[in-house]
Simulated scan of single mutants.
Amino acid sequence: MALASGKTATVPCVTLSSPDAAVVAPDAVGVQEFCGVNEWAFTRHTACISGVSGVLSVYALVEGREVLVGQVYFTITTGTSTSGNSARWTHSFSLTPTLMWGSVGNTYLIATAECAANCNFESMNFNSAFPIATGVSRSGSATLSTTSYGEGTVWRAWSTWAYWFRNPDWVIPVSNTLRISAPDHRCDEAIGIRFSIGCVYSQVRPLHEIGRTRYPKYARHIELAINFGVPSILTRTQISAQNAANRARACPQSPANGWSCDEYPFASTQEGAANPIHPYGRTFQILNWNNGAEPFFCGIGWLTPRRAGDSLGYSVCGIPLDQNTGGGTDLGNFYIRNRVLHDDRFQVMVV
């Protein structure tokens, strides 16, 4: 090897203890809002991993032999954040040296975001202006986007960070390049406003929370139905005929009190009233409670009130129109925000 004047005969090599491929248990509920340590942690809109370890090793050529003369041990944190209302996502990258020794002074970290699939690069920032130092993170973030494949289509997209080290004192001034990729996420133009695109981690089951104080009777009806055994994990249907059939069976008439007819499971789900899993429908007319809670009346004259131990059938209740409308609007917004498409499962919880 020919040596440049004043330079040490050094060869850099970077190795990474790569994490296993990001695998999410089918139908997993995304409740983690932090980075997983050496494993990916997910929500419906994020994926993040921390503690990925690597080492930069610098070798000197001595009489034809490679002798280790310096090392940088480091950890990586990287993650993505998508949106149900945008074709864009952000991908962050951070590398922190944890131990440095030997011929690694004046070493710089270079990193750049790259598109991996169905992706367009938009912008990036990464600070490579200063040499690396123990305990000091070098971080950056990139914005990327995807392009529609047409109305009603669904596709996968993801991105990568490439990084390497540079030192002007090395004979070979740059190390090999390594890459760390984010898990792929699902994008679609199949819900919400026409031509709108959104992206999510579809392998994570989203959670639809219904607040008791926001729509009290609407929430109480759903809470009672779930407590009696009506499913809390539902499956979206985008088949309009199925939606209509669910509504027609659950609400063939208006409540006697003139309020709005509310059904659970929702008419927009495959578990709705028209599903053969339901032998009948039930309503609620609870006159007293052993725990002293207030009575609860639904005013539905065409269905039998549910009794203790009766966990079968769909549920119907008469509730104020504004609560039924508001609850339906919230559900629709939840579908769009979380890109809940046909056959996607989601969980319902009253909080």
Rank of each mutant, 00 (worst) to 15 (best):
V200T: 09
V204R: 04
R205T: 15
P206V: 07
E209S: 08
I210M: 06
R212T: 14
R214Q: 15
Y215A: 05
P216E: 12
K217W: 11
A219H: 04
R220I: 03
R220N: 06
R220D: 06
R220F: 08
H221A: 05
H221Y: 06
H221T: 05
H221L: 11
H221K: 05
I222W: 05
I222Y: 03
A225D: 12
F228G: 00
G229N: 09
P231C: 08
P231R: 03
S232E: 14
S232L: 12
I233S: 08
I233H: 07
L234H: 02
T235D: 12
T237H: 02
Q238A: 09
Q238T: 08
S240I: 09
S240M: 08
A241S: 13
A241H: 02
A241I: 09
Q242M: 14
N243F: 10
A245G: 08
A245L: 08
A245C: 04
N246V: 08
A250P: 02
A250L: 06
S254N: 12
A256M: 11
A256S: 14
A256R: 01
A256E: 15
N257K: 02
W259F: 13
S260V: 02
D262W: 01
Y264A: 03
P265C: 10
P265D: 11
P265W: 08
A267F: 08
A267V: 06
H278Q: 11
